[in-house]
Design a protein around this nucleic acid. Sequence first.
DNA 1: ACAAAAGTGTTCCTAATACACCCATGA
DNA 2: TCATGGGTGTATTAGGAACACTTTTGT
Lengths: 231, 231
Amino acid sequence: MATSELDKYSKPSVAVDIVVFTIMGNELKVLLIKRGQPPFAGQWSLPGGFIQIDEQLEGAALRELNEETGVRDVYLEQLYTFGNLNRDPRGRVISVSYFVLVDSTKIKPFVTGKENISEVQWVSIEKLPSLAFDHDKIVKYALRRLRYKLEYTAVGLELLPDNFTLTDLQRLYEIILSQKIDKRNFRKKILSMGILEKTKVFKKGAHRPAMLYKFKKAKPISTFRGFKFEG
Amino acid sequence: MATSELDKYSKPSVAVDIVVFTIMGNELKVLLIKRGQPPFAGQWSLPGGFIQIDEQLEGAALRELNEETGVRDVYLEQLYTFGNLNRDPRGRVISVSYFVLVDSTKIKPFVTGKENISEVQWVSIEKLPSLAFDHDKIVKYALRRLRYKLEYTAVGLELLPDNFTLTDLQRLYEIILSQKIDKRNFRKKILSMGILEKTKVFKKGAHRPAMLYKFKKAKPISTFRGFKFEG
DNA sequence: ACAAAAGTGTTCCTAATACACCCATGA
DNA sequence: TCATGGGTGTATTAGGAACACTTTTGT
C-alpha cells in the first residue's frame, strides 16, 4: 500500500463518540463514563475512543461501546462529524459521532476492562452534568435527532423488547418527546402505519391484560430516510 | 501541545469531498473535476482533498472548492462521513462529505491553479459518468438530501439570485424534484411560509412582467432542522 | 390581434386533533 | 365491588391536491 503521499503532512486523529439512549423507569437515559485520566479526569463524558487504522467507523463505535460498557447488539446510526480545532486539548481530534438505541431489558451489568474508566452510569437526560470535550453539544444534537426521527420512523421500537403493549410504546413516545399524547389518536396512527403485528399473547398484570404486539419486519438499520450506507 | 498519546498508533487520513449543485438552463448540475494523477487518473471525481492539521472541516471544504474551481460564497452543509477501509487505494482515508448550493449567476469562469486537475466541468445529474472512489455514493446521498430538504426548508433559494420570480422558483423545484408542480398550489404554499417578500420591481420580458421577490431574512446557514453547529 | 407567460379561488379529500365512556382483571 | 389500566369511535379542522380562466405585455 503506497502511503507516501498520505504521510507528507501531519494528520489529525480520528475518534468516535457514541450517545447511547435507553428508557429506564420513566426516564430517557444516556450512558456516561467517568474519565480516569486527563484530559478532563474525573469528569463525565460519552463512551468513545480512537479508531484503529484497519477498522470500520461503525465497527470502532461498536467496539468502544462494548469494551467500555458491555453494551452489544444495538441500533446504530451516524450523527455528525465534529472537528473544531480546539475540541480536544491533546491535539487535533476529529470525532465522528453515533447514536445508539438499546432496549434496557437487554442491558447486562457493566464489566469494563478499561483502566482509564473509573465509572459507568446511565444518567437521566434531565439531570446531565456538564460533559468533557464538546460532548454536551453532541448529546444535544443526538436528542434532537432522536425526537425528530420518532415522528416519522419506527425507530422507537429499538428501545422496547420484542413484544410490547401499545401502552408501553405510547409511554416511550411521551418520555422522549416530554409531552402527553392522546391514547386513541396514538393507537390509530401507529396501527395505520402497518408495521405492528398482534401476537396472541397477553401481558398479565394487576388489571386487565393487554395485547402484546411485535414489529412486523426486520428491524430497520438505516441512516437517513431509509437509505442504507456503507453496507 | 502533548500529542504523544495520539501518535502511538498510525492514523487514517482525513479528507473532505464536496458535492456542489447549481441550476444551469433547465438542468441540475454537479461540479466535477477530472483527475490528473493516480489513483483514478483521467476519471471524473468530486472536488475535495486532505484537510490540514490546523484547519476547520468546513474551512477545508471551502478552501479546496475555491482552489480547484474558483467557487466562493456558498451555502455549505455537512452530509455524512464515509470511512470504508478500501475506499481509497492509497490507504485509509476517511472522507467528510459536504454539499454546497450555488447560484449559477454568481459563478465565474474556472481558474484553477492545481496541477493535478486536468479539467473542471458542470455535469448534468442525468448524465453523470461513473466517478472515482466512492463518489457515486456520495452524489447519490447528496441528491437525496437536497430533494428531501427542498420539501420542508427554504434551502432552494440558495440556488437563485437575490431577486427572482415565483416562476423561477417553481422551475427550480420542478428541475430538482423532476416532476411538474401545479402553479396555484405552489404559490399558495410558498407564500404561506411567509419567507418571501415582494420587491417593487418587475422582471420585464417578452410578455407580461412578473413580480420579483426576495428572501426575507438572512439566508439560513444550518445543518439539521435549523440547528447550527460548530459556530 | 395574437402569442406567451403572469396571476388568481374553489372544491374535494385526507390526515390530524379533540374528546368520554365501557371493559376485563386482580385484589 | 372497586381500583386500575385496556380498549374503542365520531365530529371538527387544517392542509394538500385537483382543476381553468382572465390579465398583461411585446410583437
